[in-house]
Design a protein around this nucleic acid. Structure first.
Lengths: 224, 224
DNA sequence: ACCAACGAAATTGTTGACAATCTTGACGAC
DNA sequence: GTCGTCAAGATTGTCAACAATTTCGTTGGT
């Protein structure tokens, strides 16, 4: 019954659900950086009580997604290019070690599934469907975390993904980026199937760092 | 004026301050895992209003430090050995990359300061002062983050450090552990001063992983 | 046309009272 | 003695009203 898809959520949502609703809107760019999050609006949109909404905003503040100022309430935090760099550096470290752990620990079913998604991703490149590529790409990375078995790293990566989600999606509209990303994926997958943890980690790091370079190009474009 | 040292904090503390107060007590083991955090007690101890205390608990729940159950309120979350392993894996990745970045980016003053702390750490080993070693060790790792210039990773590491802080401190009472930890530090420092990022990262990873092995030994002892 | 002072509206922060639920201890049946 | 039942107390959840502050439009002067 919980639907964070954008529409209102069921009656009497918990603060957790409201936080999810807001988080999803920030991800999608429906709430843009610096935008103020008015309590009453969120109450009307979600059907939650004021206390719940305030709790939800506190949670998001703890996640670093919004800032709360005295008597000015919550607003979506904007990430500087410098902060994007920091996020990507952290992601490179965490996704790298995740790939290494997957190569060693994942089950055969998970390896097979990774290959499956990879095949679909290849199709997306030739068929030019960036939205589908974006969804599958997210699934690919999530499967990697699942196979590595480390839920703590999973939470950290999820948190780090929110501020960059929209820009990432944006970047998939560039056909070149899609192709190079897919080449990276192939290299990572090959290392994983060969159970070569070191190679998998190195390839994943290179992949994340390449992602940052295209992203910073897009971001620069936006700012001007 | 803000004093998280354990005593009550100034009048009308913000939810942020209250969260810090609770976090510090969890770090020190004054609030043990599974212990319930009664709102009234925290109100009395901190002087904060009920709303603030509830907000603080929400923040800590978002950080994963406490769990909140309907009509049962907040209690300190206990970390399983499995979760400790996950935390240390994440720390290995993040501290590793931090050491590498420090080797490349840190200022000369920061390098010199790192050497200074290292010298003091050496003295602690011969003089058998584990408390002082614990404090200096924390400072050493914080300086590393500072020199790497990545505040995002700094926040993640700080968050990851809370559940293990007490056990870590415990481990420094073992003279052997102190000696091996210091040998690790020397190796890391040498790589950093030589500006060898790869060597620094590898040495740091080995250091963190060695830390987990001694920690898991202590933890096993406790459980039995 | 521009600007500052002012005030109403909007928004957030705070408080207290009350409702819902859990916890504890006493009591009695077996 | 052990177990279940019940009630009183403790604790958390919710709500509505009010206070404090910011925001924004208006007015008057130059």
């Amino acid at each position: 019954m919980i639907q964070f898809a954008g529409g209102p959520i069921g009656p009497a949502p918990t603060s957790h659900e409201i936080a999810g609703w807001i988080r999803e809107r920030i991800r999608r760019g429906q709430f843009v950086p610096e935008q103020r999050l008015i309590e009453v609006d969120i109450i009307r949109a979600t059907g939650g009580s004021r206390v719940r909404v305030r709790e939800a905003l506190q949670r998001l503040a703890a996640e670093g997604l919004v800032t709360i100022e005295q008597f000015r309430g919550a607003s979506v935090r904007s990430a500087s290019l410098e902060e994007l760099r920091h996020i990507y550096r952290a992601r490179a470290a965490l996704e790298g070690i995740t790939a290494a752990d997957f190569a060693v620990m994942a089950s055969d079913a998970q390896r097979a599934r990774l290959q499956e998604i990879q095949d679909e991703l290849e199709r997306c490149v030739t068929e030019r469907s960036p939205e589908r590529f974006g969804r599958l790409n997210a699934e690919w990375h999530e499967l990697l975390v699942e196979g590595s078995g480390n839920t703590t790293i999973g939470e950290l990566l999820q948190r780090l993904s929110v501020p960059i989600h929209r820009l990432l999606f944006e970047s998939f509209y560039d056909a070149d980026r899609l192709r190079t990303a897919n080449e990276d994926h192939r290299r990572i997958l090959a290392a994983i199937l060969a159970r070569d943890a070191n190679a998998a980690e190195a390839a994943m790091r290179a992949h994340v760092e390449a992602g940052f370079r295209t992203l910073s190009a897009i971001e620069r474009e936006y700012r001007v």
